[in-house]
Amino acid sequence: MADIRDLIDIRTIYHEPAAADFPLGREILARYPDAERIPVPSHWNIPTLHGNAGSVEDWTRIKRSVLVLGVKKGLTMRPNGRSAHFIAPSTSNGCAMACAYCYVPRRKGYANPISLFVNTEAIGAAIRRHAARQGRLPEPDQIDPAAWVYDIGENGDLSVDALLGGGVRDLVALFRGIPNAKASFATKAVNRDLLAYDPQGRTRIRFSLMPERIARVVDVRTSPIAERIAAIDDFVAAGYEVHVNFSPVILYERWEDDWRALFETLDDALSPAAKAQLRCEIILLTHNAALHEVNLGWHPKAEALLWRPDIQEAKRSEGGGENLRYRSGWKGRWLAAFKTLLAEHMPYCTVRYAF
């Protein structure tokens, strides 16, 4: 991807009527004055977009040219305890990128463009109230030594969302003023506009990494792995806490060799300052039969890597979905081997969470 801005060229905006009542909604509509506007009663139920099997052939075109604007209804914080203490209400759902393993389209069917929620002031106020009720973090834990951590990007990629409007900038500013909390989000895109947001150590960015040759197949429309690695020092210098997600770990013949090369590249690239604050998450691939069928319609080459029923088994997720994961017992052995390899090459990189 030569320029992250090439990811989007909005031609059609589906919007709830109330979207224009909010400053962010007006900002985005003004940014794309020539886009066709289609009012819809709900951002979640657009029959011509979601669940339309014919859309799978236009998978990436829709991601590039379609935007949905809605108003977030539920503003509750969900306990997490893994990557973050809490999952904050999402400010977006869906993505302009097209990673073949992404779980979000499992719920939406055959099209998964960005849906932005424009009531960011209400979302921010809900986060602030919730953090105030928590008080101080009682003791250091695997998530953070001193602050409650809120994942603000569970269902999208905020680096790309920031191209569309000021919502992400406002969230980073929000957490500057919450002394007992941090924001956190994972990204596969390098948006250097974020370097000017002045996070003051209160926002954690987690760059997702995997071996480059595998990313070229499954990380469709994302920033190259080398570009993500090269950005880490700059984001640390700009005041972000920068961690990495080794995610997803996809198993195939001689996968260890590719990950060893990645660890060596990462170790060579990082400054002492970046290494001193670096932490990681390790997430082995989870796949899904419905997503497998979608992918066969637009990117069957990826499925040769992702769909491995010979080493996978069905398992119901916490959300009630039927997913495929690497077989229990064997998964533990593979994860232990991955951790050993990481420790050999990057002993300073503490594993915060592995799954």
Rank of each mutant, 00 (worst) to 15 (best):
E313Q: 14
I205E: 03
F246H: 12
A336C: 06
R82H: 12
L341D: 05
A162E: 04
Q142W: 11
R61D: 13
M346S: 04
G153R: 03
A183M: 06
G166Y: 04
K301Q: 14
A186D: 05
I13N: 01
I62K: 01
A304M: 11
V118D: 02
V249D: 01
L306H: 02
L24H: 01
H43Y: 15
A336N: 09
Y101L: 10
S208D: 10
G167K: 00
L342K: 02
L195N: 08
G25N: 06
G124P: 02
S115Y: 03
H85D: 11
C99R: 02
K108L: 15
D170A: 15
L341F: 12
I87C: 00
F117T: 01
N93V: 06
A261V: 12
W148E: 01
L24K: 01
T120A: 05
L285T: 12
A30L: 11
I62T: 09
S115D: 03
I8E: 02
L69V: 11
G54N: 13
L158T: 07
P113E: 08
A122E: 12
F185T: 06
P248K: 06
K331H: 13
D9F: 07
G74Y: 10
I178Y: 01
L306N: 04
S159K: 00
S55C: 11
Q200H: 14
I46C: 10
A20K: 13
A196M: 10
C102H: 09
T187G: 01
D267V: 14
P224M: 11
A337I: 03
P179F: 09
A276V: 07
G124T: 02
N191E: 04
A18T: 10
G74F: 10
G319D: 12
N93Y: 15
S223M: 12
A354K: 08
Y197N: 04
T350I: 13
I114N: 00
G319E: 12
C102I: 13
R228L: 07
M77G: 05
E313G: 04
H130W: 11
Y240S: 04
I46L: 12
N93T: 11
E57D: 14
N45S: 13
V149N: 02
R11S: 11
E27K: 07
A336I: 10
I229R: 00
I87R: 00
D198V: 13
S83A: 14
Y101P: 05
M77H: 05
A230C: 07
A337E: 14
R107N: 09
K275S: 07
N52F: 08
P17H: 14
